[in-house]
């Protein structure tokens, strides 16, 4: 895989908070809530700002119970399930995210298709893992800050899942970062892991987002602000990967996969 781009070098980091960015985000909101799109639908922008869509498939991997389904629900602005139960099979979620490129100053609509699959379904049914891995553009490896075993499982996951797919973006995500006080994964272990693997690492909190005045519906804008760094990082790595693959950016440091 290509050397990861420096954070903020591909995507304008806080663009979603600018006036232009806020305006653009309205196409993925409806009445201050995140809009859910069917597979026949896309966000509609005024004709003057017609932009390209870049679609990516992302496989979310990680030990049972680390919060794969909860992370995807959070990224999609949906209610995070209260009680954990194993995901029965594969489920996919589409998230649209407009972002501005640093170099060309062009706005691109990113379409992320997250593939999430329960651990026991993966083990029980042979077709699931190949289906999730097939033509995937990125792997998100999840561990939980409150579950040491899920962190120690990462190297195994990396070789097992992404071993044969060297040209694919790999990102490590630590969930339940809000419970950092009770963490089972100290910072020095994270540093060692980063030195060994040279992979981007993101931290996400697993607390429910802010609610609207009615006290029930999730506030779409507040939710987006919570997860913008994850979506921007994904956009950055995937866009960079495409540029390298197309030969538009030289790739001097070819890393051998672990």
């Amino acid at each position: 895989m290509a050397r990861p781009p420096a954070p903020g070098s591909v995507i304008v980091p806080d663009w979603h908070e600018s006036a232009e960015g806020k305006e653009c985000l309205t196409c993925i909101l409806r009445k201050n809530r995140r809009r859910v799109f069917g597979l026949l639908e896309r966000p509609v922008l005024p004709p003057a700002v017609a932009i390209d869509t870049a679609s990516y498939k992302i496989f979310v991997s990680g030990k049972s119970g680390v919060g794969k389904t909860a992370l995807v629900a959070k990224l999609a602005g949906l209610e995070v399930p209260v009680a954990h139960h194993e995901t029965t099979g594969i489920q996919t979620t589409v998230v649209f995210w407009p972002a501005k490129l640093q170099v060309s100053e062009r706005v691109v609509m990113f379409r992320f298709e997250f593939w999430d699959c329960g651990e026991s379904a993966l083990k029980k049914f042979d077709h699931m893992l190949p289906a999730c891995k097939e033509k995937t553009d990125a792997f998100l490896f999840l561990f939980s800050f409150t579950d040491r075993a899920s962190f120690e499982d990462l190297p195994g996951q990396l070789t097992r899942i992404a071993g044969e797919a060297p040209g694919v973006v790999r990102i490590v995500v630590g969930s339940k970062f809000d419970q950092y006080m009770h963490t089972d994964v100290p910072e020095r272990d994270l540093t060692a892991f980063r030195q060994t693997w040279e992979l981007p690492l993101l931290r996400v909190k697993s607390v429910p987002g802010r609610r609207l005045a009615d006290g029930r519906t999730l506030d779409g804008r507040a939710g987006l602000a919570d997860i913008a760094h994850v979506l921007n990082a994904l956009a950055e790595h995937l866009w960079h990967q495409d540029q390298v693959a197309a030969g538009l950016i030289p790739n001097p440091a070819e890393n051998a996969p672990g």
Binding site: T88, G89, T92
Partner: peptide, 30 residues
């Protein structure tokens, strides 16, 4: 809960209670 698509193993209680089939769902509109 809403998902864009699903691929769930299901056993049909009457037609195939021991051999799983696949239930594929695709959300055309919410």
């Amino acid at each position: 809960p809403p998902q864009a698509a699903r691929d769930y193993p299901v056993y049909l209680p009457h037609g195939s209670p021991t051999v799983p089939h696949r239930l594929l769902t695709l959300t055309l509109l919410p």
